[in-house]
Design a protein around this nucleic acid. Structure first.
Length: 247
DNA sequence: GTTGAGCGTT
């Protein structure tokens, strides 16, 4: 789905994929193409977008025809400020089919049965990792907090993130229980009180006519329960007055 | 209208 008019990947037989990160959400392939094409022959520029919203995910894939040009583009465009945002250009590590990529080129996994785990290098060496690492670590800390907070209202976003970076497999279990627990707690706070009768007592609304007020007092829609003491107790409204008198 | 770690489409 690039501006080339071709559907899907054009030809990945001898192309070198570059991953462009930290780009703006409004940056399109057309904006990156002229930038990358100046440093070499760009075969295709693809920007993954969200299936539902269709918004850009913040990164793009640029495929070069030659590795040397791709390498040059990486060193040239990496760190370049595009649209007011510093982009990060690096060789793609993973292919479209989850195939491993070596130096940007796709390597057939069937050729070699290498049990290379993707999480082997969570943070490949960067150009300036001595200070970049600390900077990014701090930045990610804030992100994590924000993500955890936003996860309460938007889980789909998180699901999209958890493609390979799944935090912990225990979350899927805790999620269901935690959600129910939250509801139960909320319910408990709302209804269950240290003293339910006192809670309902202050709810005196003489002017506010109850839903059953228009039903006339002769026919009460609410059955009244007679206490052993002989006192009539309303099962729906536990007699605020009596409660007040007793207490 | 927002967001900011990461790896991809017919």
């Amino acid at each position: 789905m690039s501006h080339f008019g071709r559907s899907g990947p054009p030809d990945i037989r001898d192309t070198y994929s570059l991953l462009v990160l930290n780009i703006t959400f409004r940056t399109t392939a057309d904006d990156l193409f002229p930038l990358f094409d100046k440093y070499g022959k760009v075969v295709d520029v693809f920007i993954p977008r969200d299936r539902r919203t269709g918004e850009s995910r913040g990164f793009a894939f640029v495929r070069y025809k030659y590795a040397d040009e791709a390498q040059k583009a990486v060193e040239r465009l990496d760190g370049k400020v595009v649209d007011g945002r510093e982009i990060m250009v690096q060789f793609a590590k993973y292919g479209p089919n989850a195939e491993r990529i070596h130096k940007g080129r796709i390597i057939e996994s069937s050729s070699k049965t290498k049990g290379g785990s993707r999480s082997r290098s969570p943070r490949p060496r960067h150009r300036d990792e001595h200070r970049d690492r600390d900077y990014r670590r701090r930045s990610r800390s804030r992100s994590r907090e924000r993500s955890d907070r936003d996860r309460n209202r938007g889980r789909e976003r998180d699901r999209r993130r958890s493609r390979s970076r799944s935090a912990s497999p225990d979350h899927h279990k805790d999620r269901g229980r935690g959600r129910y627990d939250d509801e139960r707690r909320s319910r408990s706070r709302s209804y269950d009180s240290p003293n339910p009768r006192r809670s309902l007592s202050p709810r005196r609304t003489p002017r506010n006519e109850s839903p059953d007020a228009h039903n006339h007092n002769e026919s009460s829609p609410v059955p009244k329960t007679a206490s052993p003491n002989g006192r009539v107790v309303d099962s729906r409204s536990p007699s605020p007055r009596r409660s007040d008198a007793d207490e």
